[in-house]
Design a protein around this nucleic acid. Structure first.
Lengths: 323, 323
DNA sequence: ACCCGTCATGTTGACGGTAACATGGCGGAG
DNA sequence: CTCCGCCATGTTACCGTCAACATGACGGGT
């Protein structure tokens, strides 16, 4: 910056002012400075800037350690939305145990990130994070805002869309393949499933424990009970795995068993049969998340949070229960 | 840090030495400093550290703008490998036009990243990037090392695995659905496909242009020529879309048409029929990429590059050509 | 007893910006 | 004509850390 100033015949402070779009710079001076910057290929050092201002234009993102569709899509959505605001994500992964989370936090906060996005797959983490720092913290993918700053797709509504759809097709024997036990979204889908059964006085068959993977879905599909006609899977890959297993067992989808997934991954439309699923709009999640963070960073009170509404996509994997 | 020093009754420099694991600190002093750090919840400011040292322990990653399986998997692999070395990825997306790439570079280099990973989907970008900076630059997902620092799965070998497999099953009428035109990997798969046809004296049917998406695969599947028995798709989602389309047209897979994908996404095993595909080991790509960067950052001459070898996963979507 | 090297630690000055305050020139009002 | 105030720009200090050099205590060789 010193060199630029010398070349333009001004002080380094004037260069700084030009760079920061300060008012009250003579156009001619600004031109000279800009020319010098161009000629020298100067790029301002954000470390110094961050040191002086305490802001970094970086958003820390704590992701789960496994690249599933939801977190990944959300990350991309956040990246795109943040980019427009001049921010970039600094990514780190962490599981939800305190040590891993602590390391992630140390790293990100040490870099003076301006805000934090936590893909809070576990209910406890958010409070822990908020206690550690005073930068704005936003939780994403929790399934329910719960008072704190959060953006999420409404998991309860999504689950009910799936189950109501199956119920209205006449199904009465339901089974559920869960996501990873303990993760917020998996828990919400499971709880809602159980509540739904009770509300309609339906029989509780064993819960099939999954882990989001197509492999787990396949194994669970092999274990689906006789007589089940409606299978609600906590995500699409597990649904695909389960359908594969059911067909290996000679059960046809949807003639014998109707299957619903969750997420609406791009391949769902071309699964065989086309997968009925609950669409989650992660792009919208990313947009709202960044909007809230920008508000928080600039000290504005963030607008009211409302969960992102999912919708049901009906395809060929569900049909009326056999007469 | 000043406060820590005061509390421990030492100078700030001693604190710095403890933090940086300097030799020649009396154990008792070190203990006192560490205690003070703990009590004050002190965290060292990386902006200042970066300013003073010129290093940031951050690796800049330039990703393509669309979250496809390959780049995403590689990102996760890099994140995990880099974490072990104490580095984290700073992500930005860019298309391959010079302006977008320039902005991404300005951002990352301004943050004094210690190294750069470019998911160089286009052959020109790497040279452009390298000309801009003197931090180590590594290109990933190019398909071919081409002399510069690069880590990639061998696309030519992978494509040949797929085509040899089909050929050995007796297929002689091939068609290909491409990835996004111009991207390195798509181009390499396409070029290799065309070369393969020529080597075996096979007829050139129209190339079906895709864009990696299952949707494009579906549309291309509708356009597959009559009499084609072997369809090579540039990735798995397109293969799934294409199979869906073929079956809608009354063509059975693999009885009428054998289909091979590329990537081996987790769902491929549970597609219907199970998708024969070329497995790419992105974890290995990430590991090698980080290993090379760590070498380059610490000034060691990086070890010899060798492309990561893909392998063929045979499932049910391919079979012998009908008699 | 003296000198000198070594070890543990302290002191000072960058690193590259920004913020707050200081300065000088210029135009308009009295 | 003089004074004041504002506008454009310059000066100085500081952000938190590391690197280089400075210091002082201690101990061993002569």
């Amino acid at each position: 910056m010193h060199d630029v100033a010398a070349r333009a015949g001004v002080s380094h402070q004037t260069v700084s002012r030009v760079l920061n779009d300060f008012a009250g710079i003579r156009p001619e001076t600004r031109e000279r400075v800009l020319a010098a910057i161009r000629e020298l290929g100067y790029r301002r050092n954000m470390a110094a800037r961050a040191l002086a201002t305490g802001r970094s234009e970086v958003i820390g993102v704590i992701m789960p350690e496994v690249p599933h569709f939801g977190p990944t899509s959300t990350l991309y959505a956040i990246e795109h939305a943040a980019k427009k605001a001049g921010f970039k994500p600094l990514i780190t992964t962490a599981s939800w145990d305190p040590e891993s989370m602590g390391q992630a936090l140390d790293f990100l906060l040490g870099r003076s990130v301006d805000a934090l996005v936590v893909m809070a797959q576990h209910p406890d983490v958010l409070a822990a994070v908020e206690a550690t720092t005073d930068v704005p913290v936003l939780s994403v993918l929790t399934g329910s805002p719960r008072g704190t700053r959060a953006v999420a797709v409404d998991q309860i509504a999504g689950t009910r869309l799936a189950l109501d759809h199956l119920y209205s097709l006449g199904h009465r024997r339901f089974q559920h393949i869960t996501g990873i036990a303990g993760l917020t979204e998996a828990q919400l889908r499971r709880d809602t499933f159980l509540a739904f059964l009770d509300e309609h006085g339906l029989e509780h068959l064993p819960i099939l424990e999954g882990d989001w993977s197509a492999d787990a879905g396949y194994r669970a599909g092999l274990a689906v009970d006789e007589g089940v006609t409606a299978l609600f899977c906590a995500n699409d890959p597990m649904a695909m795995g389960a359908i594969h297993a059911l067909e290996e067992r000679g059960l046809r989808v949807p003639a014998d068993v109707s299957v619903v997934g969750f997420d609406d991954v791009p391949e769902a439309a071309y699964a065989h049969p086309g997968l009925t699923t609950v669409h989650q709009d992660f792009t919208e999640v990313g947009l709202r998340a960044v909007a809230m963070l920008m508000d928080a960073i600039s000290g504005r009170e963030p607008a009211e949070v409302s969960p992102v509404e999912p919708w049901l996509v009906e395809r060929q994997s569900t049909g009326p229960v056999r007469a």
